[in-house]
Simulated assay, not measured.
Amino acid sequence: MKKVLKIVLGLVILVVFAGTIVYLYRKSQAKPVIYETTAATVTDIVRKTVATGKVVPRKEIEIKPQVSGIIAELYVEPGEKVKVGDMIAKVRIIPNMISLNEAESRLNRARISLDDARKNYDRQKSLFESRVIAEAELQTYDVALKTARQDVEAAENNLQLIREGITKNAGSASNTIIRSTIAGMVLTVPVEVGNSVIESNTFNDGTTIATVADMGEMIFKGKVDESEVGKLHEGMELILTVGAIDAERFTASLEHISPKGVEENGAIQFEIRAAVSLKENLFIRAGYSANADIVLERRDSVLSVQESLVKYEGDSAWVEVETGPQTFEKRVIKTGLSDGINVEVLEGISKEDKIKIQIAPATAPK
């Protein structure tokens, strides 16, 4: 009996040991991998670059005074529309005391000369009427009197011009009234009534009274990297995304590429300018930030595969095509345009071929 129990116990131990060995062997074996597949598709491939910049008016003018003084009145506010010649502001002149003193002295001298010329004329006229002198001699004194009157008028105008910035014969023309030089919208009025302003002249740019722009003609100004600028040309279409108007897209036509680059953060950037096509129901404010998608190359309705499926060896490109259940072979293909996600396939595969996806294999079920 004891012998039988020993035999049974030995068999049990042997079976458990053998089972453990089989279990560990099976567990150590790699599980079969089932690769998923995909197929080439017909799609549009667009390679583009993005330029960042802003939308600004094509014509934006700074209105500056022609005389120095103090702002006496402002006639416009930002957002108002103006026409050519509309009044922007009025400047009250603070006369230069030296120039004012010289002008007053000149007027006094002119009046003295006029008084002397009048007396001489009256004296000579009496002699002429008494037939003592000839008419030709009287004419000399008549000319001198008229000249003296003209000198007085000129001196008065000069004094009034220094004091008020306008002469009595100027009519509505006055350089103390600042007027708009273009038709458009007032963007900014950086001065207030009472501010001192400096005239625009050869030595000074002058104080800006207001900025006026034609908001009906906008352009996009942006910059592109030197690696992309060689692929651009005038007339290319841009798709603008304005930061403040996310839901809308605007088209623009590239009209200028700067011939000189500027270094920014270690990279050479070239400025571009494009005419924006505005929409009637949308108002674009000056200075909106925008991004422009510039189409460099485009292929419509071409056979393509995902860029991640293509392997490259030297100058060759290939994919793994399924020839049987979970059996694949390398297939050399000829590629074309790529947008970084999909790549155009010129030859080597068709839409019916199943291409191995290596990046996401699915393991077989237990």
Rank of each mutant, 00 (worst) to 15 (best):
E297F: 08
I13Q: 00
T38I: 09
V343L: 10
I357Q: 03
G85V: 15
E280L: 11
I268C: 05
R179Q: 11
I34N: 05
T208V: 15
I333M: 07
K221A: 00
K119I: 13
E104V: 09
E192L: 13
A292V: 05
L5D: 00
G235E: 04
N281V: 08
K356T: 04
K351H: 01
E226R: 03
I209C: 08
A170E: 00
G194R: 04
A247C: 00
T43S: 11
G261Q: 04
G222L: 10
I88H: 13
S301G: 07
L5G: 01
I182K: 01
L24M: 12
S174Y: 10
V152I: 07
I94V: 15
A170W: 12
D300T: 13
A136L: 11
A362T: 12
L100A: 01
D205R: 14
I219N: 02
T38D: 03
T363R: 11
V67C: 02
R331T: 13
I182D: 01
L278Y: 07
G235W: 11
S304V: 10
P32D: 08
E199T: 03
A148L: 10
R47F: 13
V91E: 07
Y121M: 12
I133S: 00
V295N: 01
K48P: 00
A252M: 02
V46P: 00
A117E: 03
A39M: 12
A18T: 12
R109E: 05
N281M: 00
S316H: 08
F270P: 04
Q139R: 13
G184I: 11
V15W: 08
T38F: 13
G19S: 15
L240M: 06
T188D: 02
A155I: 13
A170K: 02
E73Q: 09
K279H: 12
L74W: 03
H233M: 03
E307N: 01
I166Y: 07
N157T: 05
F328Q: 09
I294R: 09
S258I: 09
L138I: 09
I21N: 10
L9K: 15
I177T: 14
G85F: 14
S253V: 15
G216L: 09
N291Y: 07
D339F: 01
D225S: 10
G348R: 02
G19R: 05
N265D: 09
K260V: 13
R179D: 03
L303A: 06
S105H: 07
I98W: 00
L309Q: 03
E228P: 06
I272L: 02
R118G: 02
A362D: 04
V55M: 08
S316M: 09
P259W: 07
T323N: 06
N195L: 08
I272R: 03
G243Q: 14
S105L: 11
I355V: 09
Q150V: 01
R131M: 10
L74F: 04
I257E: 08
R299M: 03
M218F: 12
T43V: 13
E73C: 04
G69P: 06
G53F: 08
I61R: 05
R331K: 15
G85N: 14
G336N: 05
V16A: 09
R118H: 04
I21C: 11
A274G: 09
N101T: 10
N265F: 09
T335A: 05
